[in-house]
Design a protein around this nucleic acid. Structure first.
Length: 593
RNA sequence: GGUCCCGUAGCUCAGCUGGAUAGAGCACAGGUUUUCUAAACCUGCGGUCCUUGGUUCGAUUCCAAGCGGGAUCACCA
């Protein structure tokens, strides 16, 4: 791999050592800002103390040294303390020729790092359909998995389904009481929406009962605990845990409906999993670990019989890990499943949890406990925390009906895409299936890009009234650019791929080559930061630049054969980079749109 | 109250480990098509980078305090 930074680094280091006697300097290059002449810039301020030179003088001397001693350096200029270095056309052309036919541009070789990473994401409850918050989770998880793979890691995508607990019993109970044998098939409802309907119904009926109890003089707290429906739901949970056949059968049936619904949404979103976990299988895990931890004095028994850990020394609080009746809490099974996974996959080098930032504290506690239990891999556990998706009126709340359903949102995106495609009328030769497929590609591209271009850590705002844009800094813009390049390449109709480019690149062409050169670094960075937004924003810059190039420079109409071939090759490389970058975001790019 | 996260243009967001005159998109005003796809391109408008101190040759970036917003601190999951 041709590496400009490395080439310059060595010469600068040599210069500093030989001429100024500075050993082990910290040398970092940055991209030269576009208003200045040059490719890479060295800031000379850090060296002025030791060299006792003015920034300008040092820059001048270093520049001269570079030109003299490094054949790849063609020129330099100094502005204040900034040494702007230009590399030769030959160098950039050499890089271009080396990568121009690479279909894996930006990616490292598969499984080349030797690292196996388990990445858990999605992890839904089986009592309601997926909403926009889940969409962010799913897209983020899938994209980070893609990025980690592109960094040469082996990734196991895991999904742990929260298929048991009081919330499931609520839907079950409501269906039993008010369902009259209705099914998704008989009602025409998608399975997850069907079950979600009963979850809401439970809440509604339960509220009525609570109000009645309050009217009879109970306090709000009492009423919430003692409503008949709530008691029945709890009873149902006990029966489930005891393996009561009737309850378990109902549970299987209703979860089955939900899974059918989820499968559709997952397929539409284009996300998938290598490994499914179910909490109904894992919820008892962890108890024996607590016993062991008690013996090792990591935990202690409280007077009432519950077991806890004191993390006040770590700036955290006391945390209960086992109830006084001996049953486990949420974190108990998390401790158990983590240990289980490292047993199941001994080659695992990292375990990543894609979970919203409302659980930051939970994961801090979890990892700390695992560390205290003596698991060396505890420090390789990572909480991929992301911000909430908020609506203009604030947080989404299922009970208040202020959620944006994933399926409905996707449908809306497809409708917008379809309307625009029809209006523009560029693909009238498509058959119905191709037409549908294209609009799905574009609609989902818009949605995915909209979500992934934002730094995962930050909360993001979604305004349903202002629908997601298809122009500007968007997925469709990037998809469009790709389609346009492919169109030009199709029209070229001669073998432009053969042979190496031999041209004097124009400023904008060189700029494009330089951008492509950055791709690999961006992928690496987004991998270590678990941040798809870096890829998203990078490829947007490339795309924008390409569009300017497209407008400024004729390609097929270019008369100089060498330049024409180079521009075609460059276009092809840009299209490949766009496709590869978008693939990291889970976004498909069309050949035509 | 403790802890954590956030605060950049009217709106939505970039700004990597401190570096040059803080950038995009949307919106708004205007322009570009007999020429490779106008879902594009170009021009203009738009800023107390929340405030105040500190460190530094240099701070939107690091530190401290304050203000504002959010999350969390369950024998819920």
């Amino acid at each position: 791999m041709i590496n400009a930074h490395k080439i310059l680094f060595d010469t600068v280091q040599q210069a500093l050592a030989q001429v100024y006697n500075i050993s082990n300097p910290v040398i970092t290059f940055q991209k030269t800002r576009k208003e200045f002449e040059g490719d890479l810039t060295l800031v000379t301020f850090p060296f002025i103390k030791e060299t006792k030179k003015s920034p300008e003088q040092l820059g001048q001397e270093l520049g001269e040294y570079l030109v003299k001693n490094n054949t790849n350096v063609s020129a330099f200029n100094v502005v204040k303390g900034f040494l702007n270095i230009s590399l030769t056309n030959q160098f950039w052309l050499g890089y271009f020729n080396a990568v121009k036919d690479s279909v894996t541009i930006g990616y490292k070789k598969e499984n080349s790092s030797g690292k196996t990473i388990m990445l858990e994401y999605s992890s839904p409850n089986t009592n309601k359909p997926l909403h926009l918050g889940h969409v962010r989770n799913n897209l983020l998880g899938f994209s980070v998995a893609q990025i980690l793979k592109a960094n040469g890691h082996k990734v196991i995508k895991a999904n742990i389904i929260n298929d048991r607990g009081i919330h499931i019993c609520k839907s079950m109970l409501a269906w039993q009481k008010f369902g009259n044998g209705e099914t998704p098939a008989s009602s025409g409802l998608k399975g997850d929406f069907f079950v979600g309907k009963y979850y809401v119904l439970f809440d509604k009926e339960n509220k009525k009962q609570i109000e009645e109890l309050i009217a009879v003089g109970k306090t709000k707290e009492e009423a919430e605990k003692k409503s008949l429906l709530m008691l029945e739901a709890q009873d149902m949970l006990r029966k489930w845990e005891a393996g009561d056949k009737e309850v378990v059968d109902l549970w299987k049936t209703m979860n089955g409906w939900v899974y059918e619904g989820f499968a559709v949404t997952y397929k539409t979103l284009g996300v998938d999993f290598d490994k499914m976990y179910y909490e109904s299988n894992t919820y008892l895990l962890g108890k024996e670990i607590i016993e062991e931890g008690l013996k090792k004095n990591v935990f202690y028994k409280k007077e009432n019989g519950s077991v806890a850990i004191d993390l006040s020394g770590e700036g955290l609080d006391e945390k209960i890990v086992l109830r006084s009746d001996g049953t486990s809490v949420y974190i108990t099974q998390d401790i158990g499943t983590a240990i289980e996974r490292f047993k199941e996959f001994p080659q695992l080098s990292q375990l990543i949890y894609t979970v919203g930032n409302e659980q930051d504290y939970h994961f801090k506690v979890l990892f700390k406990i695992l560390e205290k239990l003596g698991y060396a891999w505890a420090k390789e556990c990572y909480h991929l925390s992301y911000g909430m998706v908020e609506l203009p009126e604030g947080k989404m709340k299922s009970r208040e009906g202020t959620v944006v359903d994933a399926d409905e949102l996707i449908d809306e995106m497809l409708a917008t895409a379809t309307a625009t495609t029809k209006e523009l009328g560029k693909v009238d030769d498509f058959n119905e299936e191709e037409f549908k497929e294209l609009n799905k590609t574009i609609g989902l591209g818009a949605l995915k890009y909209f979500i992934l271009k934002v730094d995962p850590k930050k909360k993001m705002l979604f305004d349903p009234k202002e629908s997601i844009d298809f122009n500007g800094h968007t997925g469709p813009f990037i998809q469009y650019t790709h389609a346009r390049i492919r169109s030009v390449l199709r029209k070229a109709a001669f073998d432009f791929e053969r042979g190496e480019a031999k041209v004097e690149m124009s400023a904008i062409e060189k700029e494009l080559v330089k951008f492509i050169y950055d791709f690999e670094g961006v992928v690496a960075e987004s991998g270590t930061a678990f941040n798809p937004a870096l890829v998203a924003n990078y490829i947007y810059e490339v795309t924008k630049l390409y569009n300017r190039f497209y407008h400024e420079c004729p390609i097929l109409k270019e008369e100089d054969e060498n330049i024409k071939i180079f521009r075609l090759q460059l276009s092809k490389l840009c299209a490949q980079a766009i496709a590869n970058a978008m693939n990291l975001l889970g976004i498909v790019v069309p050949e035509k749109m």
